[in-house]
Amino acid sequence: MSGISRRKFLKSTVVAGGSAAAAMSSTKSFAMKEFEGYPESMGVLVDLTRCIGCRTCEAACNKEHGLPEPELPFDDFSVFDQVFHEGKQKRRTTEKAYTVVNRYDTKAQGAPVYRKLQCFHCSEPACLTSCFVNAYTKTKEGAVIYNADVCVGCRMCMVACPFSMPAYTYDSALHPQIIKCNFCYDNRLTKGKPPACVEACPQEALTFGHRKTLVKTAHERIRSNPKKYVDHVYGEKEVGGTSWMYLSSVPFDQAGFNTTLQHHPILDNTKSFLGIVPMVLGIWPALFMGFHLLAKGGKGDKESKDKVEVHGE
């Protein structure tokens, strides 16, 4: 509830200028509450200790969404050795793959750690809040879905995504669009079925359920097995919470996670600017008209007085 209203509030700050006073007062009432996400939001808990790197989720995703044939079979594990940009990047989501699994050879553990990557389906998604045509929707089921019909192709969402998940069909001249995991929203989520990757995972490394419940489950797993897990649920707090969360046995930065992310929504970063919008819209006209009248009045009607110095700029 509060989240919806808050987003609406921010909308009003951007659009409205006239109702500056009203918008200012609503800042106070909503700033107190933090957005906790939709109560019925679904989520997935990824337990990296269970993942064996079989890439079945990748295959399931590919078939579910009718994505292009892969370059290599899904049971070709040489892909884990692929690195790009002088070894600085492992495989990532592309316009042909909503999800990829990467292998991380950590020092702490003998066995490698595998990590599945896909859209995290943030509770307060940066892609959504940065999109100027509202092409994204956070559904009440928790999925962040994209509407190509209104997309202009500015790729702001790709810049804004803290996980760099969205891909883009750059090669399409006429209808390029963002490609990203949609939580199997249309075909499965709305029909009471889990996402294809979750259903396919042999190890049940992916646990599907209400996000609320999954947070408890995650902490319970850590509590009952403190030696096995790092005491952190990645995605519980990151960028204001994500629907996809992770448990790991190795420190998260060793498994390729960005551990420097802020714990409040990305949207909050724009607040200090959006706060001045009503002020500028409301006060500037009067202020500068006042300056103008002062300047005019002081000089009289003739502009013949010569002054060499400049004021300010």
Binding site: T56, P73, D75, D76
Partner: peptide, 17 residues
Amino acid sequence: FYSSGKYAPTGGKSGGS
């Protein structure tokens, strides 16, 4: 499902370990 065996894309080796 795995695009493997006779469904493998050309050039890829399937059934890897």
